[in-house]
């Protein structure tokens, strides 16, 4: 965990209400896909926790959806802005149990962490399949980026405006996979849990105070005791989850 200044290098809208930022700074504490950073914004007391979409050298990429005043302020920040960023938070995904053909399932704002995970897994020579779930076609992002990695990409939209009509679980039956990784809204995670006999890892979202385990604001119960989503998570393995 490191608190340091990042400079905003690129900011672009990539889908409806969805923005991609590339920031430059010390990324050395980001060690696993599925980790997050906590960003201090002028005028807001608590930081904004955002998952890491990609990291390469000194460049950190995040993708976020405008959902409130904080993310709206972020979307309007000019390139060149300096931000205080607490980086290297959370446990992240464990790549070891992936098997040869892992399936990655991202829903909406849960898609970004899947990208760095997919890049790491394809680098290891894994045959990666990805399901990207969105509400409608205008919300879709990163489909081409996943395809460029060589992943098999399936898109679902709730309204059927592109890809498979329905939810991520509607695309799962036609894919054979050894293990899965998922991130998205909790009802989606629950549907994935119920809809697959394979084992996997789930990344959860919760309102946080600090982001590093001090305030106990984001605690959940697991089969192995209480866990703080920010520090002991956000990734939990299927076998420990209590719904």
């Amino acid at each position: 965990m490191l608190d340091s200044i990042f400079t905003l290098k690129e900011s672009r809208k990539i889908a409806k209400n969805t923005y991609e930022w590339v920031m430059e700074g010390d990324t050395s504490h980001i060690t696993a896909p599925g980790q997050f950073v906590n960003i201090k914004l002028d005028g807001f007391y608590l930081r904004r926790p955002i998952s890491v979409a990609d990291v390469e050298g000194n460049n950190l990429t995040i993708v976020y959806k405008v959902v409130g005043e904080g993310t709206e302020k972020m979307a309007n920040m000019p390139v060149g802005s300096e931000l205080l960023v607490l980086s290297g938070l959370g446990n992240g995904y464990d790549l070891a149990p992936s098997g040869d053909a892992p399936l990655l399932i991202g829903g909406g704002a849960g898609v970004p962490p899947m990208f760095l995970l997919a890049r790491r897994l394809t680098t290891l020579g894994k045959s990666v399949s990805v399901i990207l779930g969105f509400g409608s076609a205008d919300e879709i992002f990163y489909k081409d980026k996943f395809e460029k990695l060589g992943a098999e990409v399936y898109v679902t939209t709730a309204d059927g405006s592109e890809g498979v009509k329905g939810f991520v679980t509607d695309a799962m039956p036609e894919i054979s996979y050894s293990y899965f990784y998922t991130c998205g809204p909790e009802p989606m995670l629950k549907a994935v849990y119920d809809g697959s006999s394979a084992s996997g890892q789930f990344s959860f979202e919760e309102r946080m105070g600090c982001g590093f385990g001090a305030c106990m604001g984001c605690t959940c119960e697991t089969k192995y005791g209480n866990k703080r989503i920010c520090r002991d998570g956000p990734v939990l393995v299927k076998e420990e989850i209590i719904w």
């Binding site: 608590l46 309102r207 946080m208 105070g209 106990m216 605690t219």
Partner: peptide
């Protein structure tokens, strides 16, 4: 004690609410 159900945290101007 497990504490209260989540969400336990909310932001306020120059401050925060908690119900851990």
């Amino acid at each position: 004690r497990f504490g209260n159900p989540t969400p336990r945290i909310a932001e306020a101007h120059s401050g925060m609410l908690n119900a851990v």
